[in-house]
Design a protein around this nucleic acid. Structure first.
Lengths: 343, 343
DNA sequence: GGATATATTGCAATCGATTGCAAAAGGTCT
DNA sequence: AGACCTTTTGCAATCGATTGCAATATATCC
């Protein structure tokens, strides 16, 4: 009973339908050149026997895998990807979009993947194109892909100088919104928590500076505190900042919600009131942000649009078009961690 | 410059090396039957030209895809998978393990996948086996897989009656640890927040009952509050409970950390002190749990061991062995949300 | 009726690598 | 020199589906 029957092949279906393999093949793909009745009959037989075309054979013949490789770049040091929960969000959207378009998704985390992506995924015909998530500290492998003419798109920070399509949030504007908001709440000395070697974070830092300057405040380099993408890093970095001469800061803009929560923890532990003494804004709007205490003001990225665009642009490129970079608008979600005025 | 050169095939390499395709193929796979020097030479040429075997052709010929499909079951209602952040953890481990073993990972979220998994992934030869994450409300598709003899393993709750291998945490024991801990902290009326139609959660509920009974407390059915896997659900459910006759509860055991955080938020908003008035314990130990305020006591699952086991058992099965179910030990991580005694 | 157009179907090559089996080359022993 | 191994290599079939082109059958028109 276990192995009901050996998996069928097209030849089996053809034989059962009394037609040639070519006719069967065409019938299954609903090729109108085949008589409607024949088509119907073949399809019926295939359905009855739960026949599925062998994807491997089809790929070999058509030279298309109908598969997209999604590569998640992890930070070499922390083994963390750009803010975890955010990642799963966008991954989910990408998966759905690909499925809807009839593509499979090959997932790879770059922790172990030291592979040469082009040869491994593309030359080997495992995938028709790639989506790279998280440019991180500028990765030479991405440039190689571009040089080799592999169809791919990147989620990250569009700086305007890349030779490849990048879809990403308008990090600079998001940061500017966040910091302007903090200043409006009365903050004078706002710390920036994030690792600016990450291109996306660098953009956020620029937005941070924009906001300060627009308000006539002088950005202090000492307030930029390199912080990895974890709550722990945010916690430790803030703790350290409090013990140092930076104790007079009254606002924190964190490059991710996780960092922000770590920072908040450190402050609360020292009896520092949030937002009264120090106001905090994060980035991402992960699910937990609305449910911590105080709830976290943050910059929301449009993951849905992001995922859709990534897929749309990549498929467009694969089908002979050109993939364009795009900057997605973000918006500020204000919650308790920064609201002094109405609180 | 763009398309440096058409992707090479084995035939090209063979020609360049002055040997036949068969020899080239064997040389590349380091078949000792081929002269060492020839092997060396062919390999060198292949490396020089960045040649990669066409995975599709190889799969077709060898009848092995060297790919595992990982299917994430989402709850039909909430579109949420078993506690998100936890999911990404285990997914990462699985990805690494598979990579280490030379397998690729095809990821599918079941939101859109209404496909018949067997025929789509297995019969079509897209994958050599499947890993299903999150049994959820018992899914008939899983039973079908088992009946069809497809190699697969499930992450979820082993109840002992399944006809297929299940790897998962000892949910019952974890819950028992958690609730016993709450009782030790003086709780008399502990609510259970979680959807017991989920097998894993059902097990946690059983553990919850075990603990109460062991302490001579009578489980009150009214304290079992069906709650989806989100912070929001935890928040709303708790709010509602507070407004109802359940206001006298002094402890909460939540089926996930996200739920716990939502619950905590609702309590704090009402000015109820955690842990003094109500103590809380969650499940999962997601990264954020240590950094909320108060930090969350929770039950930690061993995702690393879990991911490794899933992969190991599945590959074992694929290679002709048998995959065994396994229950992983969990441990209580106590933090502030439940500690009354030393606080 | 014959010529030409149209609708259907099948033959056979093809995608790129793998592998059973046979052949060739070189060596050893009597 | 011939029989017999051993080592190394290549021929050709094979995996399962797709598709250009030719073949057949049917319809249409003058």
């Amino acid at each position: 009973m276990k192995q009901a029957a050996k998996v069928m092949t097209l030849a089996d279906i053809a034989r059962m339908a009394g037609v040639s393999e070519s006719t069967a093949s065409r019938a299954l793909r609903d090729n109108p050149v085949i008589n409607a009745q024949t088509r119907q009959k073949v399809q019926q037989i295939a359905a009855d026997h739960q026949f599925k075309v062998n994807a491997t054979a089809r790929s070999l013949r058509t030279q298309k895998s109908h598969t997209i490789a999604v590569i998640i770049l992890f930070d070499a040091k922390t083994q963390q990807a750009i803010s975890d929960p955010f990642l799963l969000d966008i991954l989910g959207v990408i998966a759905d979009e690909l499925t809807a378009k009839g593509y499979d998704m090959l997932l790879s985390t770059s922790k172990t993947t030291d592979k040469d992506w082009r040869s491994y995924y593309f030359d080997s015909k495992r995938a028709d194109g790639l989506i790279v998530i998280g440019q991180g500290e500028h990765d030479a492998r991405v440039d190689q892909l571009a040089a080799a003419g592999v169809p791919f798109v990147v989620w990250g920070a569009a700086t305007g100088t890349e030779q490849f399509p990048v879809i990403g949030s308008d990090n600079r504007q998001g940061a500017q919104l966040a910091v302007t908001h903090l200043i409006k709440q009365g903050c004078k000395r706002v710390a920036f928590l994030g690792d600016i070697r990450h291109t996306e974070i660098e953009m956020r830092y620029l937005g941070y500076q924009d906001a300060l300057q627009a308000a006539g405040l002088q950005p202090e380099p000492a307030l930029q505190l390199n912080t990895d993408f974890t709550a722990q890093a945010g916690y430790l970095q803030t703790q350290q900042a409090l013990f140092s001469q930076l104790s007079s800061l009254d606002g924190i803009f964190a490059a991710s919600d996780a960092i922000a929560m770590g920072a908040m923890k450190a402050l609360l532990e020292q009896g520092i009131k949030v937002p009264q003494q120090v106001a905090i804004v994060g980035f991402d709007d992960i699910a937990m942000s609305a449910y911590c205490t105080p709830s976290l003001t943050t910059v929301k990225q449009d993951t849905h649009a992001g995922g859709q665009l990534l897929v749309a642009q990549l498929l467009n490129r694969i089908n002979g078009g050109k993939a364009a970079s795009q900057l997605l608008p973000v918006k500020l979600v204000d919650r308790q961690s920064s609201l002094r005025i109405n609180n």
